[in-house]
Design a binder for these strands. Structure first.
Length: 657
DNA sequence: GCATTATTCCG
DNA sequence: GGAATAATG
């Protein structure tokens, strides 16, 4: 105990008492004050959507109940600045220590770094912990100590680390409560009146909170897990774990999930149950993808807004709010897509397969900017998770080295019969097609007029014709891709000629594609006009669909609407902030500073020592941070230089070693 | 031994 | 783009 002062545990997305290292450490050091700060404005574009807020509200109630049973309760604060609120809590309680668990999205890394600096300056001892991952991002490296650029490399390494993930911690037996008599909780409003009706429906299908997370885990381990492999293709039945929202809010520890699944696996392996063994591998792989999303976010803090492969910056996205609206409303004329989008809207959830279907369609058929789709997912998914969603969309868009090929357009009709062979899924979500025979359910545009009539369907009226023909979309995609490569080559050539900017003063090169004004769910369902004319004028935009990033708005570097793409420096790379120490000796924070790390990685001739090898101190001391170190951050990688070296490196690693 | 053709997997 | 699995005739 330090001088009688108590400790603050700052809860964020770790809303549990079991296997919560920050809580455990605080309890060990004496009296505890548990705090949750609601500061959505801090998160810019990515403040939680309606369904996420609905979940969070209840998750906090469950956490509070658990804390009360242990001897304290949760202090809630409404704030526009988390760090200031922490200071207030410290001042009103006399706390001398702050404990929290790591987060890896860029906003959190910046904020948490600042919290640590500010509070330390105020004489508060700050310690942070890994509660969200099997291994911290800086622990997982290849033989040369470099971070991985593909998932399979990363995950193989995770599964063969020289040491196991930490074993889950038991919940504290009892918590001594700090004095909060002069630290009143704020009432937090998580939903407005208009949202209550929609939210009421969510409660039918979902029960947030740590105890329900544990129940969901148990149910899954004892039920669907063993057939997880076999049922992968079924989108219509309860064969998934349904853990994603629980995991997002940290209601259950991923290490607990991992350990329990492994125990099952050993059991089934010993029984010679190959399918069971394989099922666990597949399930753990999806846990691994979640891990990898944090890894990617940590190593590439811009991955929620910029393609990791630089040439994708030059893809001419179709900027068409009509398409976007049709997709959101489930009125594209492709039943599998439309069913998925209606389910998402109605329930806040989609089977992973359907996420792939609707997002591929979004990017490859409609060729809308992927970040629009990601933002819509963010606003509507119960398990909205910036890191996972960024990884998912970059995978689908093919902007990471191991992503899907961009020019591969899946056959929706085929996928429909594969994932939904009897059309039950489509009929459930598209009542207008309920009488359409299975033979036509995934391609009503081919159905004979008599069949449509008998089913009460009038295409173009009560159900749309395809908004874009697949063949036209493929042709359009090829054209767009060749334009992309031309732009990329022109830009590269210009840079080699020493020009400051590859594309001269083309206004395109600084154009931004902002989020459409109404990316939230909209309630009107007016029919969308079909546009099947492939020669119709398409409004395309070059450049990545850059919008003011949440980090830049957070840092107030640039104004929302007028911010411009920062130009390359002469060597084609972004500027490295001058005052970032890449090689300083402060290796107590091995990640040190992820931005410095990021720039270092992207510096082609870097000789800096790669990130820290071997086993590190597991907790305390280490904070994943992304510190812009002042205002000169805007020049950091701007796609081109950074990403092309990323591409080169990944090719290099594929071909040379 | 049986057909036809190339490489790897589907997050 | 589609499905399982590998070399090759």
């Amino acid at each position: 105990m330090s001088g009688g002062g108590c400790s603050i545990v700052w809860f964020r997305r770790d809303l549990r008492v079991e296997d919560n290292p920050a809580l455990t450490a605080a309890v060990r050091s004496g009296a505890v004050i548990a705090v949750f700060i609601w500061a959505p404005e801090e998160e810019g574009h990515y403040n939680p959507g309606r369904v996420s807020r609905w979940w969070l509200k209840q998750s906090l109630i469950h956490l509070d109940i658990a804390l009360k049973s242990l001897g304290t309760s949760l202090v809630t604060k409404r704030s526009s600045d988390s760090v200031s609120s922490l200071l207030e809590v410290i001042q009103s309680t006399g706390a001398t220590q702050l404990f929290f668990n790591h987060l890896y999205d860029p906003i959190s890394m910046v904020r948490d770094h600042r919290a640590k600096e500010v509070l330390t300056a105020h004489g508060v001892a700050v310690r942070s912990f890994n509660a969200d991952l099997l291994y911290e991002p800086w622990e997982v490296n290849d033989e040369e100590g470099r971070s991985f650029t593909t998932f399979s490399g990363f995950w193989d390494r995770c599964l063969s680390m020289p040491y196991d993930p930490e074993s889950p911690l038991l919940p504290p037996k009892r918590i001594i409560s700090g004095d909060v008599s002069r630290c009143a909780s704020d009432t937090i409003v998580f939903e407005d009146e208009l949202e209550k009706g929609s939210n009421a429906l969510l409660a039918r299908a979902w029960t947030p909170g740590w105890s329900n997370a544990d129940k969901a885990l148990t149910t899954f381990l004892n039920g669907p897990l063993i057939e997880y492999s076999k049922n992968r293709r079924k989108v219509d039945t309860a064969t998934t774990s349904f853990l994603s929202p629980h995991l997002h809010f940290g209601e259950v520890s991923v290490r607990k999930v991992f350990n329990l699944a492994r125990i099952k696996q050993v059991l089934w392996t010993n029984e010679g149950n190959k399918a069971g063994e394989e099922s666990v591998n597949l399930f753990l792989k999806s846990i691994g993808l979640r891990e990898y999303s944090r890894y990617m976010s940590f190593n590439h803090p811009h991955s929620h807004e910029r393609p990791l492969l630089g040439h994708l910056r030059y893809f001419p996205w179709v900027v068409d709010e009509g398409y976007f609206k049709a997709w959101r409303q489930g009125r594209t004329g492709y039943p599998l897509v439309d069913a998925g989008m209606r389910e998402l809207w109605a329930t806040g959830w989609l089977h992973d397969r359907i996420r792939v279907v609707v997002s591929s369609f979004f990017v490859k058929v409609l060729q809308l900017p992927w970040r629009w789709g990601m933002k819509y997912f963010w606003d509507t998914l119960l398990d909205a998770d910036l890191e996972s969603d960024a990884l998912g969309w970059q995978y689908i868009t093919g902007t990471i080295p191991d992503g899907r090929e961009f020019d591969r357009v899946d056959n929706l009709q085929f996928e429909g019969y594969k994932f939904d062979p009897n059309g039950e899924y489509v009929r459930r979500w598209l009542p207008e097609l309920i009488r359409l025979p299975t033979e036509w359910i995934h391609h009503p545009w081919n159905a004979p007029e008599s069949v449509l009539q008998a089913a009460g369907i009038e295409l173009g009226s009560n159900y749309p014709l395809p908004i874009v023909e697949i063949d036209a979309a493929k042709a359009r995609l090829q054209l767009a891709l060749s334009q992309m490569w031309q732009h990329e080559a022109a830009s590269r050539a210009a840079i080699e000629n020493g020009m400051e900017e590859g594309l001269g003063d083309s206004s395109e090169s600084t154009a931004l594609i902002a989020f459409p004004p109404d990316t939230d769910m909209d309630m009107d369902h007016e029919p969308i006009r079909n546009n099947n004319n492939p020669t119709a004028t398409i409004n395309r935009r070059y450049e990545d669909q850059m919008v003011p990033s949440m980090t830049s708005s957070f840092l107030r570097v640039e104004d929302e609407e007028t911010s411009t793409y920062v130009r390359n420096t002469a060597d084609g790379r972004g500027e490295v902030p001058a005052n970032v120490n890449v090689n300083d000796e402060v290796r107590r924070e091995p990640i040190g500073n992820a931005l410095a790390e990021f720039n270092r990685r992207n510096s082609e001739d870097s000789t800096a020592e790669s990130s820290i090898n071997g086993r590190r101190e597991r907790d305390g001391g280490v904070v994943p941070v992304w510190s812009p170190s002042g205002s000169n951050y805007s020049g950091d990688e701007n796609g081109m230089g950074a990403s092309s070296s990323y591409l080169q490196r990944s090719i290099h690693s594929l071909t040379s070693y």
